[in-house]
């Protein structure tokens, strides 16, 4: 009878020289017996959070407590034991071992924990029957539908009857019909003595949730210096719909700003020259890029983070920045 308490969790990745921090001081509590849905667009850190809960990623700082277990501090044999007995993971892409049958996949974690062959088989068959795959015991993943594979994955997650079940986008690879069975199973699992955490951007799951944890994307990139890029004529700096945290100032050359319309046509919005800046809206307000930026000629641009950009422009220019937006009006970037 424990709650899952996540406190001030921070995760940093080193992404090729600069730091990405998808979780920055994240805190939440999932009550015992409840099903929590982590909701948020892709890239906001859902998988990262679940990896920490599953004991397969060590957070940079913060704590994850379940009962007397401090998950974030586990190491070695204790970590292996936690992965074996305390947590069950359902993956988006099922992640079954292709060489093993349905029974084999469910038996594997039991055998890894030292259960005898007979006992493990009995338990695996029982679980597969529970998820409705009693007829599919000897099939390999390649011989099963996505929904069936996801149910094997669920049975595997349940092998040790763990008190924590986590599922990463469990319905993303499934069609509508297959989703239902998987959702019902997940819902039934959230009972006293267990917590279920499901990450998704599928709002079909929302009615099932006892608790909805909304996560917003953040781009926290730390770099000591602005990034200068040289672009060949026609080279794309960023595409519409992508995310980024750089505001660009043209040093030389020119940049064409183009909006890709729903009609499939690219509408030119503006052509910018030296000392003009663009791409400020995305980083400032956490929005995707609203247009594509492409070099018109040999061009050099310098990308600043919002903080650096403020310094670069001087505090008094901050209002100019917003005015620049108003001036461009429709053409926000």
């Amino acid at each position: 009878m424990s709650d899952l308490i996540i406190d001030d969790l921070t995760v940093e990745y080193d992404a090729g020289g600069y730091t990405v921090r998808p979780l920055d001081g994240f805190s939440t509590t999932v009550q015992d017996g409840s099903l929590a849905v982590l909701l948020g667009p892709s890239g906001c850190g859902k998988t990262t959070l679940l990896s920490c809960l599953g004991g397969i990623l060590t957070p940079t700082s913060g704590s994850i407590r379940y009962g007397h277990i401090e998950v974030a501090g586990l190491q070695g044999a204790a970590l292996t034991a936690y992965r074996q007995r305390d947590v069950g993971i359902v993956f988006q892409s099922f992640n079954l071992v292709p060489s093993l049958t349905a029974v084999g996949n469910v038996m594997a974690p039991l055998r890894a924990a030292g259960m005898s062959s007979t006992a493990a088989r009995t338990r695996a068959v029982e679980l597969l029957e529970h998820v409705g795959l009693g007829e599919r015991l000897g099939h390999r993943p390649s011989e099963m539908s996505g929904g069936q594979q996801q149910r094997v994955s669920l049975a595997r997650a349940l092998a040790h009857d763990p008190p924590i079940i986590i599922a990463d986008e469990p319905t993303a690879s499934l069609d509508y019909v297959q989703v239902e069975g998987v959702l019902r199973l997940l819902r039934d699992l959230a009972a006293p003595g267990r917590v279920v955490v499901v990450a998704t951007h599928d709002d079909r799951l929302l009615p099932l949730a006892d608790q909805i944890i909304e996560m917003v994307p953040r781009f926290h990139e730390e770099s000591s210096a602005p990034i200068s890029s040289e672009l060949a004529p026609g080279e794309v700096l960023f595409t519409q719909g992508s995310r980024g945290n750089r505001i660009f100032v043209i040093e030389s050359g020119s940049i064409d700003i183009v909006r890709e319309g729903a009609d499939g046509w690219a509408h030119p919005l503006a052509t910018l020259g030296p000392n003009e800046y663009f791409g400020e809206m995305g980083p400032l307000f956490g929005l995707p890029r609203s247009a594509t930026a492409r070099a018109g000629s040999e061009t050099v641009v310098v990308g600043y983070t919002p903080e650096q950009f403020r310094q670069h422009m001087g505090a008094e220019r901050l209002t100019d920045l917003i005015r620049h937006e108003e001036r461009n009006d429709e053409n926000t970037l």
């Binding site: 992640n95 079954l96 292709p98 594997a108 890894a112």
Partner: peptide
Amino acid sequence: VRDFAIFKATGASNVD
């Protein structure tokens, strides 16, 4: 590699 990641995530030890 994926097999190993899965096995490890479900509690297999490196030795095994």
